[in-house]
Amino acid sequence: MSTQIPKQTEKTEETAAETETEAPSKGDERRAEKRRRADERRRQREVEEAEKAAADENTVELRVFRYDPDIEGKQEPRFDTFHVPFTKGMTVLDALMYARDTYDSSLTFRHSCRQAVCGSDAMFVNGGQKLACKTQIDELEEPIRVEPLPHAEVTKDLVVDMEHFYDQMEAVEPYFQTNEYPDGELEEQRQSRENREKVKMSTRCIWCSACMSSCNIAAGDNEYLGPAAINKAYRFAMDEREGEDVKQKRLEIIEQEHGVWRCQTQFSCTEVCPKDIPLTEHIQELKREAVKNNLKFW
């Protein structure tokens, strides 16, 4: 299957025919006529643009994974090809949106903020975990292969089931805990600049799950907490505002059978993290903390 330009042309005729049959009043008639002409012009333009794009060298070829358990003909996974006109600064997300809005409105992917902060659109692009919104088309080899994140169950097209990821994130008591607050009314806890700097990178996580998808260990051990959840534990364990008692409890959580010791420092999570969080380093540091802590009781 190639681009769906022919289908687009068919649609034009259908709509035009439908509009002609209904025209109750003069004003409505005039508006309907105006609208139909505008629509025709727009469709004409779109068709021309798409045809030109397909002929032109300046288009991008995307091969996109398709699957829908609900639709006969899509139950067997396949790849669809879309030719999208290239514009300067175009991202993989822009290209997918263009393909969806112009050729096939059933093309399905999560996206929202378009600026790498909501973490919705992690995908497998040319064999690597990427955020579609911050991946520039002109930095990729064509045809661009877009697939759902590996090691996750595919819901439909590029959408994967995130439940397991969320469960792991929530398994590390991912909320601030402390035993003492300052006495004064309206008084904040003090935190040194150095300590804030220490946890800063870990707080940037946007829960996109690219790291989890890239991790071989997580692929083989479904109970492994995974890089993002361990990073979340790090974010609190290293925060000086929580205090020693809480840190003790945190180290016990990450030292469990499916915790930090599973990590084999392959750095794949660190490589794919779109927020540049040094995940492997954080995991290593927690291992060291755990060892120090255990020595304390000898």
Binding site: Y175, F176, Q189, R193, R196, K200, D239, R241
Partner: peptide, 12 residues
């Protein structure tokens, strides 16, 4: 108090 990582002054 819920742990939000605000930017900090020298005095914390």
């Amino acid at each position: 108090h819920w742990g939000m990582p605000f930017s900090r002054e020298e005095d914390g």
